[in-house]
């Protein structure tokens, strides 16, 4: 499964939108429920899915989904899908 494919159900669950389309260009402004609390929920859910913890610097660099994909790629977490 692609990384976007793994991220999509997480985004849909956290933001309560089963039709949300997750693209690299997606930003918070396009999602009404993307507030500070749900942003933390999103981070924690992604950490659980990919089994790692973001650093403060990584969190600071994240302004859209593409940045998240870059972080996952740099950590080598975009290669292996869970069985």
């Amino acid at each position: 499964m692609s990384v976007i494919g793994r991220l999509t159900p997480i985004f849909r669950d956290v933001f309560g939108d089963p039709a949300l389309v997750v693209t690299p260009e997606l930003k918070a402004d396009a999602v009404p429920t993307w507030d500070s609390l749900n942003h933390i929920n999103l981070i924690v859910a992604i950490e659980a899915e990919f089994d790692f913890e973001f650093t403060a610097e990584e969190l600071g660099s994240m302004t859209k989904v593409a940045d998240l994909l870059t972080i996952l790629s740099q950590r080598g977490l975009d290669r292996v899908a869970p069985s």
Partner: peptide, 13 residues
């Protein structure tokens, strides 16, 4: 907002 772009929204909320 400079360090954690999305978390700054907490202030307005």
């Amino acid at each position: 907002g400079r360090q954690f772009p999305y978390l700054a929204r907490v202030v307005d909320k």
